[in-house]
Amino acid sequence: AIERGSKVKILRKESYWYGDVGTVASIDKSGIIYPVIVRFNKVNYNGFSGSAGGLNTNNFAEHELEVV
């Protein structure tokens, strides 16, 4: 089962992080479509409006993740 702290591989082909491994930061139990927040070591794009980097978290559905 996917739980907080799990290392997961991203299976969503259109994702910037496809094939990468991230760490589960949290799981939303409220029934939303993409409840699993995954944190990565790298950012997906340069930040804007003065922020240092881009996003390094993204929401995924459990079926888009594979525990490694």
Rank of each mutant, 00 (worst) to 15 (best):
A1S: 08
A1L: 12
A1N: 09
A1D: 09
A1Y: 08
I2C: 14
E3I: 10
E3W: 05
E3M: 13
R4H: 08
R4C: 15
R4A: 13
G5C: 14
G5K: 02
G5H: 04
G5A: 02
G5L: 03
G5V: 02
G5T: 02
S6C: 14
S6A: 13
S6I: 09
S6T: 13
S6P: 03
S6V: 11
S6Q: 12
K7G: 02
K7Y: 11
K7A: 06
V8W: 00
V8G: 01
V8N: 01
K9Y: 02
K9S: 02
K9P: 02
I10W: 01
I10H: 03
I10F: 02
L11A: 03
L11T: 05
L11E: 02
L11Q: 05
R12A: 09
R12Y: 03
R12K: 07
R12T: 07
R12I: 11
R12H: 04
R12V: 08
K13E: 10
K13M: 07
E14H: 05
E14G: 08
S15I: 04
S15R: 00
S15G: 02
S15K: 00
S15W: 03
S15H: 03
Y16P: 07
W17T: 00
W17Q: 01
W17G: 00
W17Y: 05
W17P: 00
Y18C: 09
Y18E: 03
Y18D: 00
G19C: 15
G19P: 01
G19D: 07
G19K: 04
D20L: 13
D20F: 12
D20G: 06
V21P: 00
V21F: 07
G22V: 08
G22F: 06
G22R: 03
G22M: 05
G22Q: 02
G22L: 06
G22D: 01
T23C: 15
T23E: 12
T23V: 12
T23D: 04
T23K: 03
T23Q: 05
V24R: 00
V24N: 01
V24W: 03
A25F: 07
A25L: 14
A25R: 04
A25M: 14
A25P: 01
S26N: 10
I27T: 03
D28E: 10
K29A: 10
K29G: 10
K29N: 12
K29Q: 09
K29Y: 12
K29W: 11
S30L: 07
S30N: 11
S30V: 06
G31L: 11
G31A: 10
G31D: 14
G31S: 12
I32M: 12
I33A: 12
I33S: 12
I33R: 12
I33F: 11
Y34M: 11
Y34C: 13
Y34R: 11
Y34G: 06
P35G: 12
P35H: 09
P35W: 14
P35E: 12
V36T: 00
V36H: 00
V36N: 00
V36P: 00
I37A: 09
I37T: 14
V38T: 00
V38N: 00
V38C: 04
V38F: 00
V38R: 00
R39D: 09
R39I: 14
R39L: 11
F40Q: 03
N41A: 11
N41R: 08
N41P: 11
N41L: 11
K42M: 04
K42R: 09
K42E: 14
V43Q: 08
V43K: 08
V43A: 07
V43C: 15
N44K: 12
N44Q: 14
N44G: 07
N44W: 15
N44M: 12
N44P: 09
Y45H: 15
N46C: 15
N46Q: 09
N46P: 15
N46W: 10
N46L: 11
N46S: 05
N46M: 07
G47L: 02
G47Q: 06
G47D: 15
G47F: 04
F48I: 14
S49K: 06
S49L: 13
G50T: 07
G50P: 13
G50L: 03
G50A: 06
G50E: 15
G50S: 10
G50V: 05
S51N: 10
S51I: 10
S51P: 13
S51F: 06
S51G: 13
A52H: 08
A52P: 11
A52Y: 10
A52V: 12
G53Q: 11
G53L: 08
G53C: 15
G54D: 08
G54S: 08
G54T: 06
G54V: 05
G54L: 06
G54I: 09
L55Q: 13
L55H: 08
L55Y: 12
L55I: 14
L55V: 14
L55K: 09
L55G: 08
L55D: 10
L55A: 11
N56V: 12
N56L: 08
N56G: 05
N56H: 08
N56F: 10
T57S: 09
T57H: 10
T57V: 09
N58K: 05
N58P: 03
N58V: 10
N59Q: 06
N59Y: 08
F60A: 01
F60W: 01
A61R: 02
A61G: 09
A61V: 02
E62P: 10
E62D: 07
H63R: 06
H63Y: 10
H63V: 12
H63P: 04
H63C: 14
E64L: 03
E64R: 01
E64T: 01
L65H: 01
L65P: 01
L65A: 00
L65E: 00
L65I: 06
L65F: 03
L65C: 06
L65G: 00
E66K: 09
E66Q: 10
E66S: 05
E66N: 03
E66A: 07
V67S: 04
V67M: 09
V67W: 06
V67R: 05
V67A: 06
V68D: 02
V68E: 05
V68I: 11
V68A: 05
